[in-house]
Amino acid sequence: MEKENVNRNRIAAVRFTAAEYNKLVKRFKATTCRKMSEYLRKCVLHQPIATNYRNESLDEFMLELIRLRRELNALAGNFNQTVKKLHTLRQIPEFRDCIMQSEAQRQALLEKVEEIQKAIDRTAAKWLQ
């Protein structure tokens, strides 16, 4: 089946005030149309226009989760570096208990960070749909 070659060679010019044009651009940006001409053509020809819908509270929640993820990664990295430095003191008997305890805390922290990251990833996947 061949696709019909449609040359658009007719122009219909319309003038807008600045306020009208800003309103038009705002509506256009809320659609899935790639070009303003496509949007205007659909409006004029009464064709259906698909619009994007975003939940602002979910957007804010996702921004907060992203910030928390960065902080958790930084904390985990700092904690990991501290534990590695403690391991250099392993030869001193007083530090052995401290090292063993910090190692258990490190594992627990890293597990929690990983669990939180998986939850954030699941939420982000739903958010991006």
Score class of each variant (00 low, 15 high):
R15M: 03
M62I: 14
V113A: 11
Y53S: 05
S57Y: 04
V6L: 14
R69K: 14
E103M: 11
F16H: 14
E56C: 04
D97L: 05
V113N: 06
Q101C: 10
N7D: 07
F16C: 06
Q117D: 07
L75Q: 03
A50K: 02
R15H: 02
I66N: 05
K126S: 08
N22Q: 15
V83K: 01
A74V: 12
V6I: 15
P93I: 12
A108H: 03
E71C: 00
K3F: 07
E64Y: 02
Y39Q: 01
L128V: 10
R96G: 04
N78R: 05
N80I: 04
A13I: 11
F95W: 14
T31M: 10
A125I: 10
A108N: 03
K26N: 14
D121W: 00
A18S: 05
N55L: 00
V83A: 02
T17E: 05
R70I: 08
V44I: 14
E20W: 00
F61R: 08
A104P: 04
V44Y: 12
T123S: 12
I66P: 00
K84S: 08
L86K: 01
K3Y: 09
V6W: 05
C43I: 15
V113G: 04
L65H: 02
L75T: 01
S37G: 07
V44H: 05
L58Q: 13
L45E: 07
K23I: 06
E20F: 06
E38D: 15
E94I: 07
N5G: 06
N52H: 04
E38S: 06
R8W: 09
L40D: 05
S102K: 10
P48W: 00
W127H: 15
E2F: 08
H46Y: 13
M100P: 02
Q91L: 15
N7I: 15
V14T: 02
M1F: 11
A74L: 13
Q129W: 02
E103S: 12
A13F: 05
A30D: 05
R96Q: 15
E2N: 13
N9V: 08
L110I: 02
T82M: 14
Y53H: 03
L72D: 03
N52R: 07
V14K: 00
R15D: 03
E64Q: 05
V6S: 04
R10P: 02
L24H: 08
